[in-house]
């Protein structure tokens, strides 16, 4: 391998590492506030990528069905429990987004318009998912939540296949072309991705470190009962965590859709790699999760150069020693066993 190839691989590693880092951070956040291993985060990624691709093609994205139906069920449940205001909101907001999309889809909105619309369609899906699938099971054992997460993943994959079909899509990069820095070609879109990830990661750090909302989430994460005693509702914290995870998942999906072709089931693999990074951080530390993500991006990128067929074999097989290492660290300060 010469220096040029090494540099190109490093660029790839950083680009996918940036995406995995965003996902890993969102997964750590959701797990620490709700004990849910959010396997379907990968589906938010692929759904938003496919929604963006669909808008680029001038179509009305099929994701609207999910938003509409999900919103309707949430509204219905709210109405049944007597929360009329909530019910109206859950009818009005998805309704407005659907109406806007149907009106605007045929027009050329520009990249910013399409991305805003995608965000508005896909980020609420995460909250709907929390409300319908997870919140009723808030007290269930972690392993039940894991199976529910797997079921939601399967459900969303099925939906995605149903409305987008088995074909893959790729979106136009925000900034096409390359620039040459010190004799090294740099893809501009890679810079966009790395830059966006850096901004989002900084914003998250500020949110958790400096704002009341962020601190409330951290309080719930470290001790849900204690947080409840000082007036933080764990359900509300869970909702915020899912909304943030939805936003991050959407942005990741839109970013990555210009670098690689996205199929209905691509998100699962991307999400799993985010998971592996989150695990390296013991599902607890944000900076470690980000570091783990870049490491996984690196392993993947160099593995695909040396043994491209075995890229995924290597990435997934390497998880086992990481898990064992992590388990050894965690077992030193573990809690009482769970039923």
């Amino acid at each position: 391998m010469n220096g040029m190839i090494a540099a190109l691989l490093a660029q790839d590693a950083l680009t996918s590492g940036a995406i995995y880092a965003l996902l890993a951070i969102s997964l750590v956040m959701v797990f620490s506030t709700t004990r849910i291993l959010l396997i379907p985060q990968g589906e938010i990624v692929s759904l938003s990528a496919l929604t963006l691709a669909s808008l680029e093609a001038g179509h009305v994205p099929g994701t609207l069905w999910l938003l509409g139906l999900g919103g309707l069920v949430v509204a219905g449940l709210q109405a049944l429990s007597g929360q009329i205001r909530g019910a109206v909101l859950w009818l009005a907001i998805p309704g407005a987004i659907i109406a806007a999309t149907r009106l605007l889809a045929a027009h050329d909105l520009g990249a910013a318009g399409r991305m805003t619309l995608t965000l508005a369609i896909c980020a609420p899906l995460s909250v709907i998912m929390y409300r319908l699938a997870f919140r009723p099971l808030a007290r269930a054992p972690t392993l039940v939540l894991l199976i529910v997460a797997m079921a939601v993943h399967v459900l969303l994959t099925g939906f995605s296949l149903m409305v987008f079909g088995p074909e893959g899509f790729r979106t136009r990069p925000l900034l096409p072309g390359t620039i040459t820095v010190a004799g090294m070609p740099l893809r501009l879109q890679a810079l966009v991705i790395i830059g966006t990830a850096a901004v989002l990661l900084t914003a998250m750090a500020l949110y958790f470190g400096r704002t009341l909302g962020g601190k409330a989430l951290r309080a719930t994460a470290s001790n849900a009962t204690g947080a409840r005693l000082v007036g933080i509702r764990p359900e509300a914290a869970g909702e915020v965590a899912f909304l943030l995870a939805g936003l991050i998942g959407c942005i990741s999906g839109m970013l990555i859709s210009s670098m690689t072709t996205i199929y209905f089931d691509t998100g699962f693999m991307i999400g799993l790699k985010g998971f592996m990074a989150a695990i390296m951080a013991g599902l607890g530390s944000y900076p470690l999760a980000a570091a783990g993500a870049v490491l996984i991006g690196g392993i993947e990128s160099y593995a695909s150069f040396y043994a491209s067929a075995f890229k995924d074999v290597i990435v997934f097989a390497l998880i086992i020693p990481v898990l064992i290492w992590r388990n050894m660290i965690d077992s030193r300060n573990r809690d009482e066993e769970e039923e």
Partner: peptide, 28 residues
Amino acid sequence: LLTLGLRGHYLPLSTLAWSMALFYLVGN
């Protein structure tokens, strides 16, 4: 022997990992 010492959610995640690794290995 390698993974059953894993606790809580690490064990199911490890089953995902090794079965995916095996799947891609055989496929290639």
